[in-house]
């Protein structure tokens, strides 16, 4: 059986908020390394991979591998009943038809108990090879979100170019064009506010802004985001948590 306790409900609430517009039904795979999820969007253009490691749980017990087939819209309805600071306990039998969620406030005088019906989801997993990326950019997640939102008002697509001068996001649309260039600017006192660029080789790729704006819903998970790019392979965007991560992969666009 599974028994997993999070000190703060906000962790799972933020993860579900971050991915629910990309995928609808997915398996939460529970095993002795924690809770993992991998799912593609319906169009097979984007993929989300999530891992909540056992170290991030106040209590974690999972005797055998359990797949929790969850509709994320339904899960979000139940999670609305949890306050951010509540302790959350997830429980499931070995072959469960429901997931039990218990929310307890810090004063220990309120216990909320919910059951979420599970579904059988036949989900295939993709093998994602270890990749040496041509460019890796670490920047404040709020700034990346702002750039994607601003450019999405002008165009459907953004060209991302990483060179030794910096990383340039540019787009062209019906009303005009726009570009934002970030130069390497490490912040010694507050590293989470700085921008660092590791460049092995120049990279130039084009991506759909609709998906990037969607990924930015994970900005609440981390102050920083890591963007990894190589020519002619999918983009990797990672939001690292204290004990886990949410990663998004996005296939590129080619030509005009």
């Amino acid at each position: 059986m599974l028994e997993a306790r999070l000190e703060q409900s906000s962790v799972l609430k933020k993860v579900v908020d971050a991915i629910k517009d990309l995928v609808q039904d997915c398996n939460f795979d529970c095993n002795d390394s924690g809770i993992q999820l991998q799912a593609m969007d319906n169009s097979h253009v984007a993929l989300v991979a999530m891992h909540l490691k056992t170290e991030g749980f106040a209590l974690y017990r999972c005797d055998r591998n359990i797949a929790l087939g969850i509709n994320l819209v339904s899960l979000q309805k139940v999670l609305r009943a949890a306050q951010n600071e509540d302790v959350m306990t997830l429980k499931a039998e070995d072959s469960p038809d429901a997931l039990s969620l218990v929310f307890e406030n810090s004063e220990n005088d309120r216990i909320s108990e919910y059951d979420l019906k599970l579904m059988d989801i036949d989900q295939e997993h993709l093998g994602i090879p270890e990749t040496e990326y041509g460019a890796t950019v670490k920047m404040p997640s709020a700034e990346f979100q702002r750039i994607c939102r601003d450019l999405s008002l002008l165009s459907e697509s953004v060209a991302i170019e990483a060179t030794k001068e910096g990383i340039k996001f540019s787009c062209t649309g019906d009303i005009g064009k726009g570009a934002v260039t970030l130069r390497q600017n490490p912040n010694v006192e507050k590293p989470e506010l700085g921008t660092t660029i590791e460049l092995q080789e120049p990279v130039a790729l084009t991506f759909s802004l609709k998906y990037l704006v969607n990924f930015c819903k994970a900005s609440g998970l981390s102050n920083t985001v890591t963007i990894s790019l190589s020519n002619e392979v999918p983009l990797l965007i990672e939001y690292e948590m204290e004990h886990g991560y949410v990663r998004f992969y996005l296939a590129p666009k080619i030509g005009d």
Partner: peptide
């Protein structure tokens, strides 16, 4: 604008 590739052109099903 442009041709959108899909992920299965890069990653294989396990």
């Amino acid at each position: 604008t442009g041709h959108q590739f899909i992920l299965t052109e890069y990653f294989c099903f396990l």
